[in-house]
Design a binder for these strands. Structure first.
Lengths: 194, 194
DNA sequence: ACCTCCTGGCTAAGAATGTTACCTTCGGGC
DNA sequence: GCCCGAAGGTAACATTCTTAGCCAGGAGGT
C-alpha cells in the first residue's frame, strides 16, 4: 500500500474541515484520520496530539483571516476599509465556524508562538485601517484594542443567533461602523469633512 | 452512609468552581464528583450529562453577570455607567475565567432556553446604560449590539495576554469608553454638554 | 413502631477516544 | 541489490462518559 504523503499541513487542513462541520468541541483524531484515509495513530507521526492539532488549526485560521483582511483592504480606506474588515471577519466566522472558534479558544503562550505571529499580521491590517484616519500614535494604539474587541466581539455574537435575526445584525453592524467611523474622524488631526 | 444532599444547583456550582480552576475544556464529571465527595455516576441522577452540565454553568455565569451588572449600575448613568459595566464584565471574566468561557461557548437553542432568559437580563442592563443617553429607540437597538460586542469582545481579548500588558488593556479600555461615551452623547437628542 | 416505596447514591460494566509501543514496509542512498 | 530511516499499521492501555442494576435511607401512612 502506497504512502499517504501526510504532513502537518495536510493534517491541519483536514482537521480544519472537520471542526467546521462538527464544531470545535467535536474534533476527534478519528474523524481527521478518516478524512485522510488513514488510521488515527498515524497522525502522531506529524502532530504531537490533539492539543497540538487544535493550536495548528488556530494558527491556520488566524493566518487565513489575516490574508483575507489584507486582500479586502487593498485600495480601501476610512469607512470603506472598516466595512470591508467587518464583513470579511464576519463572513469568515460564518463560513468557517469551527476554525473561527479555534481563534477564540486557543491563546498564544510565548511571543515566539506562531499563533502570536499570525495575530500580528491581523493587527497590522487593523493598523492599516486606522492609518487612514490620521490619528496620532497613542490614540491608534488604543483604537486597535477597540477595533479588535469590536470585530471579534461582533462575529462572536453572531452564533448566539437566538437573540437577533440575521438582518438585525446586518443593520447593527452597519450602524456600528458608522458610529466608529464618525468617532475616528473626529479624533483625526485633519478632519476629512470639517 | 448519609445522603449527600445533591441537587442540580449544588452540582452546577461545584462544576463552576472546577472550570474556573482547570479551564472549560478540562471539565470532567470525575473532578466535579470528587469536589462533592461523591462518585461520578451519582451526578447523572440530577443532570443528564456533561453537555447539560456545561449549559447549566453557562446559565449560572450569565445570571451572575446579570446580577453583577444590575448592582454595579445602581445610581450610575452615562459614562460612569459605561465604566461600571465594562469593569464589572471584565472583572468577572478575570475572576471566573472558566464560567466566562462557558458564556462564550454555549449558545441558546430556543427562546424558552433558560440561557436566553439569562441573557435578556444582561441586555436589560445594557439597555439601562443607553437609556441615560436619551437616544431614540432604533439607535438604542443598534447600539445594544455594539455594546455587547464591545464588552464581550474586550473581556475576550484579555486572556490573549501575549499581545498586550495588563496596563495597556486598562488604558485601552478607558480610552474606548471615552470614545463610545462621546459618540453616544452626540447621538443624543438633547446633548448633555451642548 | 413498623411497613412501604421512592429517591439518591453506589458498584460494575460497556463504549468511545486519546495515546503509546512496537511492528512492518516503503523508498531513497550507497 | 542492500540498508536504514521514516511513514503508516496493529495492538493494547488509560481515561472518561454513560448506562444498568443494586441497595440503603428516610418520609409518610397505618
Amino acid at each position: 500500500m502506497p504512502r499517504a504523503g501526510l504532513d502537518a499541513g495536510t493534517i491541519t487542513r483536514a482537521a480544519a474541515e472537520v471542526v467546521d462541520e462538527v464544531g470545535y468541541a467535536g474534533l476527534t483524531m478519528g474523524l481527521v484520520a478518516d478524512r485522510l484515509g488513514v488510521r488515527a495513530p498515524s497522525l502522531y507521526k506529524h502532530v504531537t496530539g490533539q492539543a497540538d492539532l487544535g493550536r495548528r488549526i488556530a494558527v491556520l485560521a488566524v493566518t487565513e483571516i489575516g490574508d483575507a483582511l489584507r486582500d479586502a483592504l487593498q485600495g480601501r480606506s476610512g469607512r470603506q476599509a472598516l466595512e470591508a474588515a467587518a464583513s470579511t471577519t464576519r463572513r469568515y466566522a460564518r463560513d468557517f465556524p469551527g476554525r473561527f472558534a479555534a481563534t477564540l479558544y486557543v491563546t498564544a503562550a510565548d511571543p515566539q508562538d506562531p499563533l502570536h505571529l499570525a495575530w500580528l499580521r491581523v493587527v497590522e491590517s487593523h493598523s492599516a485601517i486606522l492609518r487612514g484616519y490620521g490619528i496620532d500614535e497613542e490614540d491608534t494604539r488604543h483604537a486597535l484594542l477597540l477595533l479588535r474587541a469590536f470585530l471579534d466581539g461582533f462575529s462572536l455574537v453572531e452564533p448566539a443567533g437566538d437573540m437577533h435575526t440575521e438582518d438585525e445584525i446586518d443593520l447593527g453592524l452597519r450602524w456600528s461602523i458608522t458610529f466608529i467611523d464618525r468617532g475616528l474622524r473626529e479624533l483625526s488631526d485633519v478632519p476629512s469633512s470639517p
